[in-house]
Design a protein around this nucleic acid. Structure first.
Lengths: 206, 206
DNA sequence: AAAGCTATTGGACTAAAGTACAGTTTTTGG
DNA sequence: CCAAAAACTGTACTTTAGTCCAATAGCTTT
């Protein structure tokens, strides 16, 4: 899966690189060479004026689903983007795992709609929105792990082998294993597949 | 993760058992013993009149998210269910992998909204809805696998080990490995984690 | 300063996972 | 009926994954 991110800032955001180690960060549409394989095209909007420009070129991105990244997304923007053919719209500073989840959904033909928007669409003060999130927040996996463990967990959950994680973080494979054991212990899991389900399980609604 | 399904039919549907091998199928609310661990409570509606009855008891199901199963779900029903505190509503005859995906979403505090409803909520004839699904359908993983391979793939993708799959299907572990090799070959994958991402990747929108 | 958590790594080991090669039986379609 | 595909199984092997025991070093809290 190939990820193209278009942003006027050549450095992009750190989380992007963590979310997609093999990301291609470019400054203009023209630099996007439509690969034959599957992928996602992300466009960061620096101003709302840019929206029209971006959406106008969506048609040229033949196979790739397009996700709009905005620093201050509002619901109107999301609606516009979706109506114009984008597969989703989310905050530029979304956590790496959220970005990966968005990628999973849109690369399979789905649409990504954030929970806040969905809440307005449904238009009710559902008990679920009011209550469940709190219960769940008490057992967010992120809170149980150290920074390094979280980093390892994300890479593994996205399909990397221990060897690949080790190379990517410049540590020994042995250390990766140590982190994995700690992760399993802390989260009460059995293996990396369960970890993936735990981390990627919260998909579809941000 | 414990799954309780309430249905007046003591046998339930075959797909339910395939989706959740360790499912607890009961005939009445009273038979649901709220386990301390995480789980999902599924209620099958046999008539729309049952809706009020079911929703009235939602409050008693302390920790468990509730998903309404309907043989003929319509958008009004889904809206009612959500507004009353249900975490989702889907077709009783949904495919096993869809059920599992619903489970993943709701057990993590999310809401499940089907694509058709979302489409109406968004209220536009988005290009994404019109075009992408067709492209994607040409490479649906289900179409590339045999019946048995599909069955194995689903179990593995939901976190089962080879041994567990073998026991569940009453075949040798060796046979499971054979199926796995065939699956990897046909789908061009490397290991079971990639398979899980491929299968569970389409999450959040049915 | 001592205690505790985190990051790091090593050796050694057990257990799964995955592959290669080879074979039988059953099912399916022409 | 025959051919092809699918299902099933075995032995043997290589590679990952995961665990156990042990150790060093940095950083934080009491």
């Amino acid at each position: 899966m190939q990820h193209w991110i278009i942003d006027s800032d050549p450095a992009g955001l750190p989380d992007w690189h963590e979310a997609f180690p093999d990301l291609k960060l470019v400054q203009a549409m023209a630099q996007v060479t439509p690969a034959d394989q599957a992928g996602v095209l992300w466009c960061r909007l620096r101003s709302s004026a840019q929206l029209a420009e971006v959406l106008a070129t969506l048609d040229f991105m033949a196979g790739l689903p397009v996700v709009v990244l905005s620093d201050e997304p509002d619901e109107a923007l999301v609606m516009q983007a979706l109506a114009a053919g984008a597969a989703g719209c989310c905050n530029s500073r979304a956590a790496p795992e959220v970005l990966r989840q968005v990628a999973l959904v849109v690369s399979n033909g789905g649409l990504w709609v954030g929970q806040s928007l969905l809440q307005r669409l449904v238009g009710s003060t559902s008990k679920v929105f009011g209550q469940r999130p709190k219960e769940v927040k008490n057992e967010r996996w992120e809170d149980k792990l150290s920074d390094r463990e979280r980093q390892v967990a994300r890479l593994v959950a996205s399909g990397s082998s221990n060897r690949e994680v080790a190379d990517h973080l410049n540590i020994s494979e042995r250390t990766v294993k140590a982190h994995m054991s700690a992760i399993f212990e802390k989260l009460g899991l059995r293996d990396r597949l369960q970890l993936s389900l735990r981390i990627n399980g919260l998909v579809g609604l941000s």
